[in-house]
Design a protein around this nucleic acid. Structure first.
Lengths: 217, 217
DNA sequence: GCAGAACCGTAACGTACGGTACGCCTTCGA
DNA sequence: TCGAAGGCGTACCGTACGTTACGGTTCTGC
């Protein structure tokens, strides 16, 4: 029903002014959560409510556009595919883990996920699908080629890339996202994130790393 | 700030009628998400709004009582601590994993987590803390003794029980909860849950199982 | 310069819903 | 039998907010 076309096309067809308005809405969303009002957005963005309605249709349209606008901003650089030895593969995985932890612990991500979760309950729009598509699924799309390359280089062993990804995902995220979404304080400093990324990577390699070296199996 | 006293004391001081009202509210919460109205609850429970306000104070009080009421219902049986060999430890872990997957994929849990996540945004009550306390933290309290017993029996190796628990948690839950909360369909049949529980348990044992057998380290 | 569009600021409208008040019925103890 | 309490149903109030309307101002093409 949902899940259709909301992947990778926004940020075009948006004027600078509209982007500025969406940025204001985004900041407001982070500050106030889902109970932001159209009046507040208009005031913050210094525009009229009439303009908001003309551009975005209604409140849900504004919310959707805001989520898509944020999603379009995090388009990341593709990883360099020169990762052929264990060291660079490890570094890539740690980088992914660290980036992902930074994302899910950011105020913006938490606010966006909160409103998307809330809207998924009374499913009239596809905010949840958008967030999922630009979060978890985008991460899978970017990580899987790395895993496949690692397998072809003889560094990783797995039969199903999707399953391997989900294992990595679980080892990285653990209970962090749900705790943050539920309001648990959980100070994630950069060094803590780095440590977690390294731990998760080592655990993943312990599970799916190829058994090399003299000891055979 | 939160996290104080909302653990393990409800379902006393509630009359049967009040429990019936909370059950009605719970059903409504599952059906309609967070936008349930006091009028709807009153109608569903065949009671007057005045009674709702007398009993629960205000809407947030009703929501809190509903969440606590549901939490009080899932008080589980403690696991038998006879788990001294690898087979019974494995069975216990699989049981935990399977139970947890069943919980987080249930309609009730999804609805409750959704409303708690929504309220954590505009944090005026501690719904998130209650859900967390009766979900993820309750699981940790029940699982850690099993892990410790496994370590003392020489079956597991880890230095930090909390860290070991979080690893297990990540291996079990992976991306399931966030996907469900965001509205992703994700059919979890009983056999799929059983398979996931077994896989997560094997992965956990691969990471933290004691290296026994002839091959030394 | 000027007509028209786009847009800002704000006032106004309609409605949904949280919260309160009140009339009536049932129960129960004296 | 009666009066008080508890509770149901419903009407009512106040307010917040989504949505629309409108007058005034700036921008743009000719």
């Amino acid at each position: 029903m949902l899940h259709a076309v909301n992947d990778i096309d926004t940020s075009e067809t948006l004027t600078e002014r509209q982007k500025a308005v969406l940025d204001a809405a985004l900041r407001l969303l982070v500050e106030e959560g889902d109970q932001l009002t159209m009046t507040a957005v208009a005031r913050r963005a210094s525009c009229s409510k009439e303009t908001l309605y003309k551009w975005f249709g209604d409140r849900d349209g504004l919310l959707t556009a805001t989520v898509q606008w944020q999603a379009s901003k995090v388009r990341v650089v593709p990883v360099d595919r020169k990762g052929l030895d264990l060291a660079s593969l490890t570094a890539s995985l740690e980088r992914f883990a660290s980036d992902w932890l930074k994302v899910i612990s950011s105020d913006t991500s938490i606010a966006l996920n909160r409103v998307a979760v809330g809207h998924a309950g009374s499913g009239k729009d596809d905010l949840g699908a958008i967030v999922l598509e630009n979060g978890r699924f985008a991460l899978a799309r970017r990580l899987k080629p790395v895993l496949e390359a690692g397998r072809q280089a003889g560094l990783l062993e797995f039969s199903d890339a999707e399953a391997a990804f989900r294992t990595f995902f679980g080892l990285v995220a653990r209970d962090v996202q749900i705790r943050l979404l539920l309001g648990d304080r959980l100070e994630l400093t950069d060094v803590a994130i780095g440590g977690d990324a390294a731990r998760a990577t080592q655990q993943f390699l312990a599970l799916h790393g190829a058994k090399t070296g003299p000891q055979g199996r």
